[in-house]
Structures are given as structure tokens and as C-alpha cells.
Design a protein around this nucleic acid. Structure first.
Length: 418
DNA sequence: TCTGGGGTCCTAGGACCC
DNA sequence: TCTGGGGTCCTAGGACCC
């Protein structure tokens, strides 16, 4: 049996954790650069706010309603997510972390087992021990577990497929809300008279494969209770991307370069956390397509001399690529660094030209940098040898005016109990 | 009148997810 | 004023090979 456990308004719940004064109040969480609403709690939804609302347009209204506004604080959300997953792993031997706020739990098919009871237990512990409200969907396939989870959000917090009136539920469930059916597929299906999950369940498999590709066929099978997509095996990550829009207008190469270096640092931290190396570096550069101004977009890729997770290697290549694609005279909006060709570093082969001593030195420098940045905060120590490191003028820096403290990951920000 | 056909690999782009 | 960021998977189509 498959459980889908999902945090309710997860980012908003994380923000509320250390702010008991916000109980019952509307909370919204903003995207990077405080651009738009990406998460909101029920109280905010009830006031008519939506995910995707442009912040500056609703700012006054939010103030009027006494809403709490937060810039997104992924350090906090990731930490809370980790705590939830530890709890799940204590309950279940087979957990697949699907996203920052959702995990699939795979339980054996026991006879006479009250799965709902297990679900309620997980829900109680998540709330009591960690302070995050979660809902649990329980079903024989992932797609049905997702569907049950949505039902659970409305009624009771736990929903078990075998215990509900399945036909009734499917007939009332819009096809566009089925997991794996997005805008395009929903529009196509509706044009064919397939309007509900019930209709889709009875859609002929050969048509599903022909019109909705193999993934659509999987969805149809899963609606029929067949577990067509099991646990995704722990597959090593395939790419690491750091992509951020600038906080303000940026024209010059030596303003973009420090931003790119900053993103490269983040990318390398992630790479090393996963004990991986990369072989390719790609840099993208964009103007703002929503703005009425001359447009330019380009990218360039380079292969590293050999797989690496050392910042100097990657940073050097990234800056060369940036210089190659940069054009004067455009108002730039975003740069991206993408690392691909990822491998676990222990699988790395040494060749006869490898200078082991030099490698060790570089590795030691990286370790020292990581240690210092961990202790004194990100970016305390950075590479300055590029000549492009920039001064204090950093127009690219992300806007985060409503950032909450790193309550759980920085001793200085530890919440106080009065 | 004929210009096969099967296979692999790569990339670009679409679709979907949270 | 401004419209996020980070992923995966699938398909189509071109290049190339035999």
C-alpha cells in the first residue's frame, strides 16, 4: 500500500512554526525577488488571494487584512522537510522523497491492517513533534494516493482508497486535477468528452498510449488500481542548476560576473554535498522577455578537462563562457549556471597525467573554504583571483525584504522561549 | 521510375511536477 | 513597480552508420 504524505501549505506552515502570534492569521510566502506569491495558508486563500498573484499589486490589500508576508527561506523549509522525512523513515522502511513537502511511503500489503490508523498516527506525530500539519492519502497506486491526498485535504486529513465510495469520488474529481494531467492533456481530454477521473479510468489503454504517450497510459492504469509506477530508484542526480533573476537592472559584464560566481559557489556546494563531480558547465544569459526592450538570449557549454568539483575549475570555465556570450548594450535580467555530466566522485578514474599532490592541495582549499563559510556564513570567503569579483555595488542581488531568520540552522537565530 | 531500412546517439523543445 | 526556481521524462527529428 502506498501513502502520500504532504505538508499543508508547507512554506506558510514553516513560517508559522516559530511565530505562534500568527495563528489564525493569513500568511503568504513570496518567490525570489519578492515577485509573486508561491505559497499561502488557508486563511489567505479564504480572503481570495492566489498562488501566482503579483506581490506589488496586492501588497496594500495584504496589509489591510493584517497578513504576514515572507520572502522564501529555503534554508528553513529544507531543514523542516528533513525532520519530517526522519519521522517517515521511523515509521516505514521504504520512503521516496518526492519533493520538499511530499513523500511516498511504501508499506507491505498486510492482511487485516488498519492503514488509516497508521496514517492518523503519522499525522499526529508530524503535528505534535514537528509542528507541521500534514495530510495522508492511502491507495494501491501513486496516482490514487495523490488523489486520496487531495480528498484528505478537504475531509479529515487521512483518506484510504479501499474505504471510500470510489466511483462517486472519481466521478466528482475533475480530470485536470489528476496527477500527470496538465493543461495540454486536460484540454485534449475534455475535447474528447473525458471530463472526470472516472472517464479517464475507463479510457481505452490503446487510445491513452496513442494520444497521451506512455506516461498517460501509466496514469490510466494507476487509476485502475494497478501500480504502474513504483518507487523511483535512488538515481543519482543528473543536473544541478542555479538560476536566479537579478534584483535590479544589470548591463555590464563586470556586474554579471560576480552574480555568476555567486551562483557557481552555490552550485558547487550542492555538487559536493552529493559527493559528485561534473564534466560540463553551461552558462545562460537572458534579457527580460516580459519587458519591452531589445531582447537577447544565449548559452554556451564547455567540457572540463576532467570531472571536477573544485570551485576554481568551474568558476574559471563559467566566466570564460559568460565572456563569450555577453553582448554590450542589453538590459540583462537573469544568468544561469548548469552543471551536467554528474558522477559520484568515488567513481572517478585517475589518469596518468593526474597530479595527485596538486589535487590534494585544491581539495584542502575547498574544504577550508566550506568550513569557514559554514561557520561564518555563506560568502565570507570567496575566490578573488578572477579580477571580476566586483565591489560593494551588487545590483544583481536578490530582493528579500521579508526574510525570516534561519531559526533552525544558525545558532544566532535560535528562537527564544520567554 | 526510383531514390531502403534499421539502428543508435544527440539535441531541442514540450509537458508536467512541486 | 512586475510576472520564480529546480527538476524529470518523453518525443521528434537530424546526423551518422551499416
Amino acid at each position: 500500500m502506498i501513502f502520500l504524505v504532504d505538508g499543508n501549505s508547507f512554506y506558510a506552515s514553516c513560517e508559522r512554526l516559530f511565530r505562534p502570534d500568527l495563528r489564525g492569521k493569513p500568511i503568504v510566502v513570496l518567490s525570489n525577488n519578492d515577485g509573486l506569491v508561491i505559497a499561502l495558508n488557508q486563511e489567505a486563500k479564504d480572503l481570495g488571494f492566489f498562488r501566482g498573484d503579483v506581490f506589488y499589486k496586492i501588497e496594500k490589500l495584504l496589509v489591510k487584512h493584517g497578513a504576514a508576508v515572507f520572502s522564501s527561506n529555503y534554508t528553513l523549509y529544507n531543514d523542516i522537510s528533513g525532520r519530517l522525512n526522519i519521522l517517515y523513515a521511523q515509521t516505514c522502511d521504504s520512503v521516496e522523497i518526492y519533493s520538499i513537502d511530499e513523500s511516498f511511503l511504501f508499506f507491505p500489503d498486510w492482511k487485516d491492517c488498519d492503514y488509516s490508523e497508521i496514517g492518523r498516527n503519522i499525522r499526529d506525530r508530524a503535528y505534535k513533534d514537528i509542528g507541521i500539519p500534514v495530510c495522508v492519502g492511502i491507495a494501491p497506486s501513486k496516482t490514487l494516493a495523490k488523489l486520496c491526498n487531495k480528498i484528505a485535504k478537504k475531509y479529515g486529513g487521512v483518506c484510504e482508497w479501499p474505504k471510500i465510495n470510489q466511483e462517486e469520488v472519481l466521478k466528482r474529481f475533475p480530470v485536470k486535477d489528476v496527477w500527470g494531467i496538465g493543461k495540454k492533456k486536460a484540454a485534449f481530454l475534455e475535447s474528447q468528452g473525458i471530463k472526470t477521473a472516472y472517464d479517464l479510468k475507463n479510457y481505452p489503454p490503446d487510445l491513452a498510449k496513442k494520444n497521451l504517450t506512455i506516461t498517460g497510459l501509466t496514469t490510466v492504469q494507476e487509476l485502475n488500481g494497478i501500480q504502474a509506477s513504483g518507487k523511483i530508484l535512488e538515481k543519482p542526480r543528473q543536473q544541478i542548476m542555479v538560476s536566479r533573476s537579478f534584483g535590479g537592472p544589470v548591463y555590464k559584464l563586470d556586474e554579471i560576473a560576480p552574480a555568476l560566481i555567486d551562483y557557481a559557489m552555490d552550485a558547487v556546494v550542492r555538487l559536493r554535498e552529493e559527493a559528485m563531480t561534473c564534466s560540463y558547465v553551461t552558462v545562460f544569459l537572458f534579457t527580460n522577455p516580459f519587458r519591452n526592450c531589445p531582447q537577447y538570449a544565449n548559452k554556451a557549454t564547455a567540457k572540463l578537462a576532467r570531472p571536477s568539483n573544485c570551485l576554481p575549475d568551474i568558476e574559471y570555465v563559467a566566466l570564460e563562457l559568460l565572456k563569450r556570450i555577453y553582448r554590450k548594450g542589453y538590459l540583462f535580467h537573469k544568468t544561469v549556471i548548469l552543471l551536467t555530466g554528474l558522477e559520484l566522485s568515488m567513481n572517478q578514474e585517475l589518469d596518468m597525467f593526474t597530479d595527485i599532490e596538486k589535487d590534494e592541495k585544491a581539495e584542502n582549499i575547498m574544504r577550508a573554504m566550506e568550513e569557514i563559510n559554514r561557520k561564518y556564513g555563506k560568502g565570507t570567503l570567496r575566490l578573488g583571483a578572477t579580477g571580476l569579483a566586483g565591489g560593494n555595488n551588487r545590483p544583481w542581488l536578490m530582493k528579500r525584504e521579508y526574510l525570516s531568520p534561519a531559526y533552525t540552522t544558525d545558532l544566532k537565530n535560535l528562537p527564544k522561549a520567554y
